[in-house]
Write a protein that binds this DNA or RNA. Structure first.
Length: 262
DNA sequence: ACGAGTACCTGGCAGC
DNA sequence: TGCTGCCAGGTACTCG
């Protein structure tokens, strides 16, 4: 579920609740999946950061508690049927909720110990993520441009929804091989990625039919109302009216307008 | 080395 | 209503 906007909305929602607070107790309900996180007990939370789709709690003992929400994970202010970890704070608790159990939690001395986090690419807002950079990355690959955008080592934070939406805004078909992207298109894609993520963040992220993404207070996001292509197969393109098509890239659905995206 | 396919989990929903 | 099969926001691993 959660891509960069949803993770950032989550970070902003939980930060006031945990910043400066001592973790009184860690209740780990899936110790096989999240080994050793109980050791965060007794530490104070100095900072809550986001990097791509990862959430990082910097703790007063110098260690880090790192969360990845996977497909269906999130934080809640209340217990749920799928609570996997409870962080008891001085004045309340935070619940890590994850129905599909694709989420992960690590306690590490250094974030670089988290496998993907050590290799992750620039944030979309980082000036390092520019047209020249994307063009260079795309040029050397025959993978579809959508697969390149979803590669967290290329750029951090894009998933299936926002890759589709960004490529629609950029007017580039998701199936286009990376090595057939022009410099001009790379420029448009970079711009579109930034715009779509910012708009999604402002809308509180996307909450789909299955409601798997919710804010910690259970409120939903509204960006799904602005989706131009994602989840809209057969419906009219908001720009030209042509029916949106769905295809498969790397085993996942990809949506595009056959007329606006070439 | 690259890229495609599959595995990991669980729940919701469409279709029969 | 109830069952079955399909689909899902992500990432890691294997295989050709």
């Amino acid at each position: 579920m959660p891509e960069l906007p949803e993770v950032e909305v989550t970070r902003r929602a939980i930060a006031p609740k945990v910043l400066g607070k001592v973790i009184r107790r860690v209740e780990n309900r899936d110790p096989e999946r999240y080994p050793g996180i109980e050791a965060a007990r007794g530490a104070r939370v100095l900072d809550v950061l986001r990097r791509g789709k990862f959430l990082l709690f910097h703790l007063s003992d110098g260690s880090w508690l790192v969360f990845h929400l996977g497909m269906s994970g999130g934080f809640r202010f209340q217990e749920t049927p799928h609570t996997r970890v409870v962080l008891e704070l001085e004045d309340g608790a935070l619940y890590f909720h994850d129905p599909r159990r694709f989420g992960r939690v690590w306690r590490v001395a250094d974030p670089k110990e988290v496998p993907l986090l050590s290799r992750i690419g620039p944030e979309p807002t980082d000036p390092a993520f520019d047209a020249a950079y994307l063009y260079r990355k795309a040029k050397k690959s025959r993978r579809p441009i959508k697969a390149i955008l979803m590669d967290q080592e290329v750029v951090a934070g894009l998933g299936n929804i926002y890759a589709d939406e960004a490529l629609f805004r950029a007017g580039v078909r998701p199936t286009r091989p990376g090595n057939r992207i022009t410099k001009k298109e790379a420029e448009r894609i970079v711009q579109a990625v930034r715009e779509v993520l910012e708009a999604a963040l402002k809308a509180g992220g996307s909450t789909l039919k299955d409601q798997s993404y919710r804010r910690p207070d259970e409120k939903i996001g509204y960006f799904q109302l602005s989706h131009a292509v994602y989840g809209r197969e057969g419906k009219p393109c908001p720009v030209c009216g042509a029916p949106i098509r769905r295809t498969r890239i790397q085993g996942r659905s990809a949506h595009y307008c056959p007329s606006c995206q070439r």
